[in-house]
Design a protein around this nucleic acid. Sequence first.
DNA 1: GAGGTGGCGACCGAG
DNA 2: TCGCCACCTC
Length: 778
Amino acid sequence: MAERARAGGAPARPASYLNGLNPEQRDAVESIDGPLLVLAGAGTGKTRVLTARVAHILSQGRAYPSQILVVTFTNKAAREMKERIHSMVGDAVEGMPWLGTFHSIGVRILRRHYELVGLRSGFTILDTDDQIRLLKQLIAAENIDEKRWPARMLASAIDGWKNRGLSPENVSPGEGAAFAHGRGQMLYAAYQARLKALNAVDFGDLLLEGIRLFREHPDVLADYHKRFKYLLVDEYQDTNVAQYLWLRLLAQGSKNVCCVGDDDQSIYGWRGAEVDNILRFESDFPGAKVIRLERNYRSTGHILAAASHIIAFNEGRLGKTLFSDGETGEKVAVTGSWDSGEEARAIGDEIEALQRSGHALSQVAILVRASFQMREFEDRFVTLGLNYRVIGGPRFYERAEIRDALAYLRCVMSTADDLAFERIVNVPKRGLGDVAVKQIRDVARASGVPLQEAARLLAESEELKPKLRATLRGLVQSFDRWREQAGHTKHSELAEIVLDESGYTDMWQKDRSAEATGRLENLKELVRSMEQFENLQGFLEHISLVMDVDNGAAEDAVQIMTLHSAKGLEFDTVFLPGWEEGLFPHQRALDEQGKAGLEEERRLAYVGITRARLSARIYFASNRRIHGMWNSTVPSRFLDELPDAHVEVQESKGGFGWGGSGGGAYGASRFEKTEPFTSTYATPGWQRAQTARAASSDPSSRGGYGAGKGSGRGGPLVIEGTLLASSIGGESAFTAGERIFHIKFGYGEITGIDGNKLTVQFDKAGEKRVLESFVEKV
DNA sequence: GAGGTGGCGACCGAG
DNA sequence: TCGCCACCTC
């Protein structure tokens, strides 16, 4: 973070990137010849080492930027590394075309040699959604009951095989038999054949086909050996077998391969990651040097101690001892609350307090185990008027409107893209429903042509009723017209033309639902971002692999994300809600992976705690809604694994619940609550009573409950925010009867005004009370 | 063919 | 509880 080498060609002070490195880090940066494994604990400056190492290689003149391969797992990591290298060596980083995720580099390689693996130029990359639809068709064609053997299940099986580097012929018969009475392997083969026919690949193929390419064409591989003088791999503990094979093939050239990883942060076992890869490194690369980074620069003493203590419960680990010279700082706070709503309220209040004391919101993160936990916080923060940002979530590319728009463009680009055509023939609705599509498909099969050509044939035949025939002909002609325009129109303009003329934009403009505005916004964003690309092809690639929602990165907002996507990041203050058995550790991890699953969950806990620089705050709730039903929960076993000396147990600051428990009524497990929370007391009704009592007896307590959301949510309705409203006061800019738009609930009409709070009858969401600042006039 | 309704399973995690 | 899908009616 610190150094900023001003480099105009060559750095002014050649070794400035070495400033401030400790001896081990410096060793890792300078040992550039031969294989190197860096075991880097959390917060030990691993990214810093990687970037300084690249700077070192460049400044020593050992390689051109284009001769260094740097592989990361996430786009975020790739982006960050690019920025940091840039700040060290200046513009040279522009020429680092081989810095990216496994998948983006994989596709880059395939694009250069597509003909060698049986693909044609401009092949498309399917995502999970396309995959499922395709598999559904195959399953149906085999007359297999989709209810009993869902496509999703087959997709994950195939994914698993691909993660392990297995093509259909390599799947062991026993395993292949696991799906639909022995037809799994056959379906996998059929799926691959279908992909080839569609000129498409899925995510797994991006690596698998690369491996095949290297194996079957040694000359191509030799070429890459010559090209890549240095290889660097981030998060090595997360590589799966396919990634490992792919890497090993490439690394056999120069042998200057540097892998950085931490076995304690391996959290991707479920997608085939093999911690063994890290243990195997020394035998794979004889003479490999191993460097351990154990000095932690991130977290204060108590946090580090708590994390180290918890991870020590794992058995299968290489074992590292993290230490730091820093201050002991704040103890790790553990807070119990009555239910998930109170948990969200307590965290919201604490964040507001932090904000008041000048803490930047962007330095606060809430890390959840499962994404459904996020909603509660979003609801709460909308009510409080707290800026937040959800990281991860549904990706830009996965949104329906974006996928529709892209499908249109794919159809323009290629008449052979059946999946894209099927997706949009009847979007917007134009009367070409299931029956029509089936007819098109029949023609396609009979004449051996793609769907778009079949549609053309059908439109010219007498098969269809005149009205439908005209519609279909119109569509086919539109595509012909757009295709013709594509030759001489800027691609972003073409996209606008296509979206307008197809009636797609219109469809959303007519839609009055809450999401419609956002969708139109997204479409605009799509067109805008196209302008940065030279052609449609390059854009389509980028969006399927790289593009994520990254708007407003600079704004000051609380970050909400899963523990998985938090790896590699750090924050001053980290909130860790939902530490309950079944949720964390997650039941499915335990059921499916047993002890290994538990250990992976524990590593996830370790990752979570070590994200914090100054303050880590853990929460558990006694009641949580699962599948819509309230369940009482048991505190996570991980809470018991925290070291007493570094933990401070608190009561919920939410103001409610826990009312009578008097300073921690902990049972056998410190966190197992006793009397007031058993049997009859453990009901939402009792809780409501408690809440109401707390509110009435404590005038300073904030009317914490959100905006009348109590309706149907088990929360109290009585204590609504008069206090909050009157404390802020002021004239409202709105009048009753006005139409408004709310960012979360959509359109509605104002029925009442109370200070800065409005009562609104929403078109879709019913009556709610909302803060004025979240509402705009329409 | 479109739109509505009722039953059912999901809610773990990345590209 | 929510969203998806199959099934039903117009």
